Simulated scan of single mutants.
Amino acid sequence: MPIYEYVCKQCGREFEELVFNAEEPVVCPKCGSTETEKLMSACATKVDGGGPNLDALHGSSCGSGGG
């Protein structure tokens, strides 16, 4: 069950949602609208130094619990 990032087309809130059933509409936790759009998420990657590539996380809400 993946976690996806969404933006609400009604109020503009960005949020994360654990998706159990891809066929059910995703509801905005702020305004209750189902007019939501899935966002492209940035993810950390491994680089030659062995640690995470923290530059990939800059500017994203990846791991922040939403907005």
Rank of each mutant, 00 (worst) to 15 (best):
N21M: 03
A44H: 09
E17G: 00
C11Y: 03
V26C: 10
C28G: 05
V19I: 15
Q10D: 09
G59Q: 15
C62D: 10
G32V: 07
A22W: 02
S41N: 14
S41G: 12
G51C: 08
P52K: 07
C43L: 14
R13W: 04
S33G: 10
F20V: 07
E14Q: 08
K46A: 10
D55G: 06
G12Q: 04
S33Q: 03
Y4M: 01
P52H: 05
L57N: 06
C28E: 06
L39D: 11
M1T: 05
Y6E: 00
G12F: 03
S64P: 00
V27C: 01
K46V: 13
Y6R: 01
E35L: 14
E23P: 00
N21S: 05
E14C: 07
F20Q: 10
E5S: 06
Q10R: 04
P52E: 08
D48C: 09
L39R: 15
E14S: 07
C62W: 15
T45Q: 13
C43W: 13
Y6S: 00
A44D: 09
L39K: 15
L54V: 13
G59A: 15
G51S: 11
M40Q: 14
N53E: 11
G51P: 05
H58M: 15
G12C: 05
P2L: 00
R13Q: 07
E37S: 15
E23A: 11
R13V: 08
G51L: 11
T34L: 05
E23S: 12
G12T: 01
D55A: 14
V27I: 14
S61Q: 14
T36P: 00
E5H: 02
